[in-house]
């Protein structure tokens, strides 16, 4: 029997509550608030309490899907990224870079958010960048 309590930070919003994942036999079975964490002091909201559920959900997407003729088809990352890049190029050529907006997320790290705005400004060429925490 392997049982570990793994400290982590809740990824649902930008608050940064400390959580503990209860891992039994390499499966996350529960989430607990971290009592000594300075941010949440042993408390969590309903989303934090249920963090483990989306990890184990059978509905969880584990690979990219591409919508082809109205249906989602499984594909690999190379193919999905190539297709997206091609479509972006088409859209930018036809409607200009400001026809695209980038919405980033509190579920990502600061570094990832930085990369996303860099992608929007330097690659796509638009200042349309926003963050879900500002909605």
């Amino acid at each position: 029997m392997e049982c570990k309590l793994v400290p982590s930070v809740c990824s649902y919003c930008g608050t940064g509550c400390g959580v503990l994942f209860e891992v039994i036999n390499n499966r996350i079975v529960g989430t607990l608030p971290m009592k000594t964490h300075p941010v949440n002091e042993g408390k969590l909201c309903i989303k934090g309490w249920n963090l483990h559920e989306h990890v184990n959900s059978i509905l969880r997407l584990k690979q990219p899907l591409v919508k082809t003729f109205g249906r989602f088809m499984k594909t690999d990352w190379d193919e999905a990224i190539r297709l997206t890049a091609d479509r972006f190029k088409e859209i930018i050529a036809e409607h200009g870079p400001d026809s695209i907006g980038v919405l980033v997320s509190a579920k990502m790290t600061n570094e990832e958010n930085y990369l996303a705005q860099k992608f929007a400004r330097a690659v796509i060429g638009t200042n349309n960048v926003d963050h879900c925490a500002r909605l």
Partner: peptide, 18 residues
């Protein structure tokens, strides 16, 4: 016993430990 549940300090946080 097969396992013992107690606490251990992990990065200055006392956490449950198996």
């Amino acid at each position: 016993i097969d396992v013992f549940l107690g606490y251990r300090e992990v990065e200055n946080h006392p956490l449950p430990w198996c």
